[in-house]
Write a protein that binds this DNA or RNA. Structure first.
Lengths: 244, 244
DNA sequence: CGTCAAATTGAAAATTATCAACGAGAGTGG
DNA sequence: CCACTCTCGTTGATAATTTTCAATTTGACG
């Protein structure tokens, strides 16, 4: 074993030196499989390791006390997850596998070791944190100010784009891998209404569906309907100190 | 001038060495007043400096293309703001003063300098970032899964708690400093509905209102109505390397 | 074939938005 | 000091969106 998912992710942002790369590899020395449906961290449990997701799709969610669930974020290979362990004694969020997955657990102290030796990686992780933050604020604005249809469309686009990042062969057709209830928990809607919105989006000719697969028929219109902003253009990391 | 708002904030989390403290002070060497209503960063404008808010209350918001606005976060003294400049060429969010304020602008490169000399501060800023992130996810869950009344109540509680952090003399009565339209933009509601929810919360005996002041009459019930979770208990930074 | 989760549909109810109007208070210029 | 204007808060009536409830239907799988 030699690669580092997380280093690859950061490497998409800026050039990584071999020394930095091998420091990041230390975060992925251990591997742990997670079966579909299983949780590696549960809300209110004492926090433990952080993780790097190596394989599969997972989600981060919170339960409200009326029993409803809010999905905060879908997680893909190369994501560093469970970072809330850095600040809290008990986890504020649950981390669950949506498909059979593999995570690499590592201790919190390992992170400060890495930053201690390679401060530039600390700065880079702050950048990574801001990208994550902006994804959250986009979702916040979507929940607060866009229609049910737009929110459902946004989930479709976001899922396709992120799946494509890990598998370049994905084009306009992909496997969503979410139940309508899960889409509802991500968008703040009921499963019933998600169903109606999907149907409406389909009837308008923006997508086609067949047994779990979604095909974008009119991507431009879908993006418009979703109010979608692509944050992956427009990155600028020129201020980072150059690699040494 | 000698203090550092941001160092004070971090100092609430963990002990800061004098050397670290003076490094943080460099981030607050310049001061700039901002009048109520003025913006120090506008969505889609080329990003510039980062800021530390020294005085006043500000907000971070996004505009949607139908003209509606989502307030992402209220900002208080000691907050480091505009961090999205670390990752993007154009700002994803607007930063506006809600009251006459004072900010300390500093360059992005300054941040990597500080982290380079004091890696432990880099780790500490990641912790700070996770606290911010959790505040956002709590709001996300509130928008997605709680009633209008709960969301309005949550704004009241959050505002009171954060105002009290900068002014210990604040008890159950405080000046909200927000219009009902602003509360609506924060909660994803219309100003009209915010008005009705405030009235309802008042009629139920949870709060009292008089010209801009709010008084908590039954805080326990208000917290229950809001689904409020206090994240300031439960912090744990034991994993950080000790100060040297 | 039987079972179970997930998807689908219709009808009714609840929540929230929209529209339209009015009132109170703060500042402004004459 | 007095209109005048403007923003903000308030209220009622109505409309739109979304949820809830209650069945079915479909598809995967043992």
């Amino acid at each position: 074993m030699s690669g580092s998912c997380f280093a690859e992710r950061l490497g998409d942002l800026v050039a990584i030196t071999p020394a930095e790369h091998s420091a990041l590899e230390r975060l992925e020395e251990r591997e742990r499989p997670v079966r579909r449906g299983a949780a590696i961290q549960r809300e209110n449990d004492r926090v433990g390791d952080l993780f790097i997701l190596r394989k599969g799709v997972m989600m981060s969610s919170m339960l409200l006390d009326d029993g409803s669930r809010q999905i905060l974020r879908f997680l893909f290979p190369g994501d560093m997850i469970g970072l809330s362990s850095l600040a809290y004694r008990e986890a504020p969020e649950t981390l669950t596998a949506l498909s059979d997955s593999v995570v690499c657990p590592f201790e919190r102290a390992m992170l400060s070791e890495v930053i201690g030796v390679h401060p530039r990686l600390g700065a880079l992780m702050m950048v990574y944190g801001q990208i994550e933050r902006t994804a959250l604020t986009d979702r916040l604005a979507a929940l607060g100010r866009t229609s049910a249809k737009a929110r459902v469309a946004a989930v479709l686009i976001d899922m396709r784009n992120r799946l494509r990042m890990m598998d370049k062969s994905i084009g306009d057709t992909f496997t969503l891998g979410l139940t309508q209830e899960e889409i509802g928990d991500a968008t703040g809607l009921t499963a019933v209404h998600v169903n109606r919105m999907l149907r409406q989006i389909e009837e308008e000719g923006l997508i086609a569906r067949s047994n779990g697969h979604v095909t974008f028929i009119n991507e431009r219109a879908l993006i418009r309907a979703a109010n979608y902003v692509d944050r992956y253009e427009g990155l600028d990391l020129g201020w980072l100190p150059s690699a040494r």
